[in-house]
């Protein structure tokens, strides 16, 4: 059995120690930032556009609670003027005593659980610093070791195979053998968009909400539509990142949960090979930094 496995697969060294540490630091930071961010959002559970909240423009999203004539509390979500009953999750949800109370996002989605703006801000800004420092280290490391240039930038053949890759993803077909040792084109595009567009944008839009950061170059926030628009973008990008994480985790699960997780913990990744691999040892050694 053991010999059959070795004949059909090989263990490669996929992720270096710094990458693994930074990845998990990022997981912790993003989780805390998201959940403490939702607690902060709950202090004013509405999204506006423009330079201020009071400019005669209706909010594009609003979570609120309303009391029915029967005395019953219901949670409402208003998106672009369309109202949904979201009792139990958005607008009104249970507190730790099981009582339905008015709050934007429910306690299971926020840090801390109870509505506590001051504490949520402490969590948010501490982990924001960690997140930015971690991101800075990641970029420095990845450019210096050519991780970005070698593993993330798309090649000409990547770009040519983009439709094939979309079809493969839709059919849940994943790469094996040599192809599994590198990122596929959609994966590269997803990682690049997150690293170079979404994460910088979410940080920048966080800064845009700071009255001090706004004063550094007065008016820069207006390039993004004003401070309240920046707050809205901050929120939307946070959810785009959640969408990325969901797809990422989904792909991790369907392409071999344990193998993927191991590669991000010990660095070792098993690649299944259908044909016997020539120059097996050389190739495996070549993957090592």
């Amino acid at each position: 059995m053991a010999s059959a496995l070795t004949a059909k697969s090989e263990l490669i060294y996929r992720h270096t120690i710094p990458i693994r540490i930074m990845h998990w630091t990022n997981v912790i930071c993003f989780t805390v930032l998201l959940m403490s961010g939702l607690n902060i959002f709950n202090a004013h559970p509405a999204l506006n556009l423009g330079k201020s909240s009071y400019n005669n423009l209706a909010p594009i999203l609003e979570l609120k609670a309303a009391k029915l004539q029967t005395g019953e509390l219901i949670g409402k979500t208003n998106i672009l003027g369309v109202e949904f009953n979201t009792t139990g999750v958005l607008g009104a949800s249970n507190n730790s005593n099981g009582e339905l109370i008015s709050r934007g996002f429910p306690s299971w989605a926020t840090i801390p659980g109870p509505q506590w703006l001051a504490m949520a801000r402490h969590w948010h800004f501490f982990f924001a610093w960690l997140f930015v420092i971690n991101g800075f280290c990641y970029l420095t490391y990845s450019f210096l070791t050519k991780h970005v240039q070698r593993d993330l930038l798309t090649t000409r053949s990547d770009r040519a195979s983009i439709w094939q890759s979309i079809k493969d993803h839709l059919h849940f077909r994943h790469a094996t053998g040599e192809e599994a040792k590198r990122y596929n084109v959609l994966q590269k595009i997803a990682y690049l968009s997150v690293i170079f567009i979404l994460l910088p944008l979410v940080i920048l839009m966080g800064w845009a909400m700071s009255p001090f950061m706004d004063s550094l170059i007065p008016g820069w926030v207006d390039l993004f539509g004003g401070r309240q628009t920046a707050r809205t973008i901050h929120f939307i990008v946070a959810w785009l990142l959640v969408a990325f994480v969901s797809i990422h985790v989904f792909e991790v699960i369907i392409t071999g949960l344990w193998n993927n997780i191991r590669s991000m913990i010990t660095g070792k990744y098993r690649v299944d090979t259908n044909q016997p691999i020539k120059k097996d040892n050389e190739k495996a050694a070549g993957e090592k930094p």
């Binding site: 202090a43 509405a46 330079k51 201020s52 909240s53 009071y54 909400m209 009255p211 309240q228």
Partner: peptide, 9 residues
């Protein structure tokens, strides 16, 4: 800028 998230000019 209110700590809650809203603002007024």
């Amino acid at each position: 800028d209110c700590v809650e998230g809203w603002s007024a000019i």
